[in-house]
Design a protein around this nucleic acid. Structure first.
Lengths: 340, 340
DNA sequence: GATGAATGTGAGATCGATCTCACATCGCAA
DNA sequence: TTGCGATGTGAGATCGATCTCACATTCATC
């Protein structure tokens, strides 16, 4: 009911100048007399003038908003990144619009499509599919800045910030092997998601480099939710000649494995050793604490935001592809197997 | 580089009509000839026309964006709510802009101030302060729809969706008392946050109703982070004549208590019984599992979104104040004390 | 056949900020 | 004194969608 609409026109009228002059004074460009400028600024202050960003956006074609499209904002990994991005954007007076793809390509397409008409300035994106990416290619080709995080899309010319999934998985499995394990189970995601593929490759490479043959019966696939992972774990450990160790490809899978093993009465690390990809706060609360491959989460968001802001500022350089190393955090969930 | 700017004008030209007629056809209002309408629609389709939402917003004064201002998007409680709100909004073609207050009133003020110039249609807000709310009052008095969640602000005329913090805390403490505990510690937040105050009241009311005197030495105050809660727990249990049970006011505090007690070598529930406010996935992974007061998180977001959408649709009724009941989930962290 | 209602369409204004261009005015140099 | 650059300022156009009006038609009714 109060000051609803203080526009530039009002300020101009109050300062007894034209809208053009008022705009010049407020945005300090062009010639404005010192005294006039002061009068305008004073009037704006007095009336509590705030520029209408929508009107500015209509002229400039761009709202000070950046879109973030994570797989799922409830995933602590993405929540942390969202927070970090938000902090960075705020420094540059930009806002963060979050739209989860829910790991669904169709939804991702629709989201980008609808956000396009909002004149969003740029996107930070965790693409759902490594291959079905025509919609992202188009976005980029229209000149919209895009930064990919967590996952990359093969032939896409844009900045990306990911971690060394293959190396991290390899390190985890290497660690299990160095503790005498050879029958190492893998609990993995459906392959569509980029990170799951890379982590699978790391698992396979590690085994091969140690001369251990791949055994399909040691691999269990499920959707990436705690509930599905529980089932997959139980399936895996119900077979005879079960694995002595398990590697899980993400934190939700790790949690599922924990519950699944507990429900089967299998103890960690006495009956089964466990290493998970992605650290999570729960990992230090269990007994024993869980050995994990940690990602440098705190670096991903800020860097992605920095890249995007640089693009928004007009920086024209070749796409940068950053791949952070992971770090194995040894806790208590891996037992040394009696040597042969 | 492709179809950058297909505007209404282009469609109108392609269909050989005026912009006005094209608009009528596309938005189906006013009189338009059947054949003309078809021609316009066909042209729009062919050109891939998408209305520019910013231009629409300039006229209507409102972007199809709703602001969500949680305390911290990393808190799983708020992350879940954000997700639920987003799903609801999507059904009505609205987007969600998230800006965390980081539990800082000044930041909250700045955020709302800056979002105001964005013509955001409405807000879902978890106010940081129960008293310092002039900025919210002003927002509401300007006619911007606001729905409060998790916390209310006393003299504010707007919808709110919260839980029965007092009752939940009372139930938790009642449960401890019924198990023979009298020296019940409280790990609580700084009092500024509304929920912490109510939960404190529940603790006090329960004790009083059982004729147990309040003992300030049983209460430990800290900021609501795991790290601070660890320290506060250690402080509390380092005193002589320590509590036999502990009630923690939120899930971060509960986690801190868990770590603090473990570092002191105190076992749950043998040495200390524990009940926490707010369920969290970690609670079922510990040994023993933690008894908690659960909030109906899954109902808060959708209801808040529903309320806000109704207001956006123009619904004019008295503010609704919903207070959901909580539910005590008994697990294994409370021991029966030998009767007197 | 005339009158008025129903139907269809376009020109132009509007939302608010910004930018271009034209027009002043002043000072200084030729 | 004339002229030209530097300095200030305002009128009006622009961004894209929508709405109000005014102006045509067509059709039905007396």
């Amino acid at each position: 009911m109060t000051q609803k609409g203080i526009t530039l026109k009002d300020v101009a009228a109050a300062a007894n100048v034209s809208r053009a002059t008022a705009a010049r004074a407020l945005n300090s460009y062009g010639y404005v007399g010192d005294e006039t400028a002061l009068r305008v600024l004073e009037a704006a202050e007095r009336l509590g003038y705030r520029a209408n960003l929508v009107a500015q956006a209509l002229r400039s074609g761009q709202l000070p908003i950046v879109g973030f499209v994570p797989g799922d904002i409830q995933n602590p990994f993405f929540a942390r990144i969202a927070h970090d991005i938000e902090v960075e954007l705020r420094k540059h007076r930009h806002n963060l619009l979050i739209a989860s793809s829910e790991e669904n390509v169709e939804q991702e397409k629709q989201l980008l499509e609808s956000l396009r008409s909002l004149s969003i300035r740029g996107f930070i994106l965790a693409p759902t599919s490594a291959t079905d990416s025509q919609h992202i290619v188009q976005l980029v080709s229209e000149g919209t800045p895009v930064v990919l995080i967590d996952r990359v899309v093969q032939e896409l010319q844009c900045d990306s910030v990911v971690v060394d999934n293959e190396g991290g998985a390899r390190e985890a499995v290497d660690f299990l092997v160095s503790n005498g394990h050879e029958r190492i189970g893998l609990l993995r995601d459906e392959s569509r998601i980029f990170t799951a593929q890379e982590r699978l490759a790391g698992y396979q490479n590690s085994l091969q480099s140690h001369g251990i043959g791949l055994d399909e019966s040691l691999v269990s696939v499920s959707r990436s939710t705690v509930e599905h992972a529980v089932d997959a774990t139980i399936r895996l450990f119900s077979r005879r000649n079960r694995p002595t160790a398990l590697f899980t490809v993400d934190s939700l899978m790790t949690q599922g494995a924990l519950l699944g093993l507990r429900s089967m009465g299998l103890s960690i690390p006495n009956d089964v050793s466990l290493v998970g990809f992605d650290d999570f706060n729960l990992a230090t609360f269990t007994d024993p604490q869980i050995t994990v491959v940690a990602q440098p989460i705190s670096e991903i968001g800020p860097l992605a935001a920095k890249f995007l802001l640089e693009r928004l500022a007009g920086k024209k350089i070749a796409p940068r592809h950053i791949r952070f190393p992971t770090r194995l955090i040894v806790r208590g969930s891996v037992a040394q197997l009696p040597g042969r």
